[in-house]
Amino acid sequence: MNNNLNMGDKLVNILLVEDDEVDVMNVKRAFKKNNVTNPLFICNNGLEALEFLRGSKEPLAELPKIILLDLNMPKMGGIEFLREIRKDDKLKNLSVFVMTTSNEDKDKVDAYNLNIAGYILKPLSMERFVEAVSTLNNYWKLCEYPEH
């Protein structure tokens, strides 16, 4: 049984933009539990993620199709990052899932106005987060993505 996120036979890259190390580990652990083997790239804030996506430090072989984005981060927050990529012709069609602790209406409205694919509240318990990732994985698998 192939649980992996793929496009045809090819696994799509996933970018996690998250500053909290435990949260990064959390995602990794949840992926592992759900047998998600897609390549996972990690950036610690919005600025870093932009540099990564634009390949300004090292050239990128392939753009990640899915981004998991935290909102509260140093240097550049999630909403600011979203604004930047939606202005960028090359990056504006990326699927972004917001994964945050913020239950603020304002954040949700701002995020959805920037065409996000989903808004997920980080649950407290690992168990429920694993469930959430599983659901996400199923969703990603359903979706078709354009070819480059």
Binding site: D20, V22, D23
Partner: peptide, 8 residues
């Protein structure tokens, strides 16, 4: 956030 970290 740290609380969730502790929990995790």
């Amino acid at each position: 956030s740290p609380l969730r970290g502790i929990n995790n």
